[in-house]
Design a protein around this nucleic acid. Sequence first.
DNA 1: ACATTTTATGCATAGAAAGGGATAAAAATG
DNA 2: CATTTTTATCCCTTTCTATGCATAAAATGT
Lengths: 166, 166
Amino acid sequence: MTKTQRQHRIGELIDHDVISTAAQIVARLHDEGIAATQATVTRDLQELGTVKVRDEHGARRIVMAASPKLAPAPLDHLRRMMGEWVVSVESSANLVVVRTPPGCAHVVASALDRSALRGVLGSVAGDDTVLVIAAEEHGGAALADDFRALAGLKTLVDGKAQGASQ
Amino acid sequence: MTKTQRQHRIGELIDHDVISTAAQIVARLHDEGIAATQATVTRDLQELGTVKVRDEHGARRIVMAASPKLAPAPLDHLRRMMGEWVVSVESSANLVVVRTPPGCAHVVASALDRSALRGVLGSVAGDDTVLVIAAEEHGGAALADDFRALAGLKTLVDGKAQGASQ
DNA sequence: ACATTTTATGCATAGAAAGGGATAAAAATG
DNA sequence: CATTTTTATCCCTTTCTATGCATAAAATGT
């Protein structure tokens, strides 16, 4: 079973049942023949964007955060997604244009939505392009540089790519 | 530089210039500080779905295939995409419903479009769901089994998941 | 405030992916 | 058809990702 499939199953479990610890999830998965330790499940919960709350009976419960920003996925997740899918980053004033292969823009946009990266007001994904609106105090150019760093692209200096040749 | 970024640059080169061999691409990339050998570039061209044609002057030229089906990507590419993103597969008559995490359906649909997998009439991608229409002679159930094998999911027998517990 | 439980993380390891070298196989050329 | 050029692939190495173990740190319960 792949990590994505396991995470999907975990998402179903916490939506459906009252679950309060990672160990409970480990046990449920084990009942279904899915092997994972508490450490792995905890990382999964982080990537899924879950929070622990009190339900209406006062019991503690793990749930999906109401908004992705309330439980951002680790920056490593964003770095992996951008490293895998982003092919170029350009900016104009407070806008950043991120290019991906066809059909992959939504993966990058989703990862951006679920990250804690600062300076992002919002984003819109097409087929192979993500348009990102930068917060005014951060600016498109600075945000574009952050994106390049995450995607393993060269930063620009005076409009030119900078850094040692690979 | 990532593989995706290199492949994007290769796509730009063959769109823009008359290029007839992988070695020419290796040289162009080298001029831009991008290291890759003929073997790697050849694999890239396969994944990109390119063909070699005669242009209007009779010169041989590598171009993107007019239709993905004319130069399908290796099955390994589809397997990697489905292994990474598909969380479940279900079928009804001649339809197959493939579930992915939010925002990832297009990646799977694009990989399906660009594969040589038989029995697929067409597909439509939503946010987290790909609807695949199976060719009549192949059938949705058989196609769903093919998808499960590619995605590393268990096959079904009489509606039940089959295979040793992991 | 303290004890217990739970989560988070450093480190190590296994497996997968990517890529290079060499060369077999296929394609192109003459 | 022979020769040359180019592509494809096998095998190997390196790098990266995912995961488990152990335990430190944080959260929870009393």
